[in-house]
Simulated scan of single mutants.
Amino acid sequence: MSELASTGIEATRRRLTEKQADTVDRLTAAAIDVLSREGYSGTTIRLVAAAAGVGTATAYTYFSSKEHLISEVYWRRLIAAPPLETDDADPAARVVAVLRQVSLLVADEPALASAVSSALLGDDPDVRHLRVRIGTEIRGRLAAALGSTDSESLSMLELLYSGALLQAGMNILSYEQVADLLEISARRLLADRHT
């Protein structure tokens, strides 16, 4: 299982004291447990709060919705996975490594993976904020791997990634299949762009 990262003193809704950060950490950890038992549709802030040992009102102080909470779990997984550092001279190999890393973040936890796909599509303003943060982080990692600021290639790679994860989230493809198809697609895209 991937490690959750504490976001430190800053969360998406407010700055946190050490005690508050601990509460948020407990809520995000409890969310994973509740999701594995109840699935996405059965998961509620109330159940997560109870599993974390905090009041429901306290949980809502930090998370506006279950979608916000689940999106935060994914955000923490992403930032816990350090950017890849590779000496590979081939930009395509570096891009593929990044795509594999981010596409497999929740692959070993089917309930969480499915929930993340649903949650990130939500219209909650806090989810939109996290979507931007997640997108910015992934774009930065792809740009570093690509070694250029070719915005057209970056946009195409982002589209490949988001479309592939949507397919995995809908259970059309496994996350492993997504990672393999992303590799083929990214290599083809980058070869076509540089010929």
Rank of each mutant, 00 (worst) to 15 (best):
A93R: 10
A145P: 00
R193F: 05
D90G: 06
I32Y: 10
K19E: 15
S6L: 10
V102N: 04
S153F: 02
V95S: 05
L154T: 12
S64N: 10
A49M: 08
A57Y: 09
L4I: 04
K19A: 14
V54W: 04
T56S: 02
L189S: 00
E85F: 09
D150C: 03
D33H: 07
E109C: 01
H68Y: 12
S162C: 00
A186L: 04
D22M: 09
L189D: 02
L84T: 07
A59E: 12
R128P: 00
M170K: 10
R133W: 11
L16C: 03
S151L: 08
A143G: 07
R128E: 15
V98P: 06
A80H: 00
A51C: 02
N171W: 14
M156C: 04
S174H: 00
S153K: 07
R139S: 02
I9S: 05
D33W: 04
D124C: 11
L181D: 15
E72N: 12
A93S: 14
S117M: 07
S71P: 08
T7I: 07
E67D: 15
L182V: 11
Y62C: 00
L173P: 06
A51P: 05
L154W: 14
V127M: 08
I172V: 15
E85S: 14
M170W: 07
R193M: 10
A191K: 14
V127P: 11
Y62S: 08
V34P: 15
F63L: 03
L27S: 09
G140S: 13
L27F: 08
K66A: 01
T86W: 02
L166W: 09
R188M: 13
T149V: 11
Y175K: 08
A89Y: 01
Y62F: 12
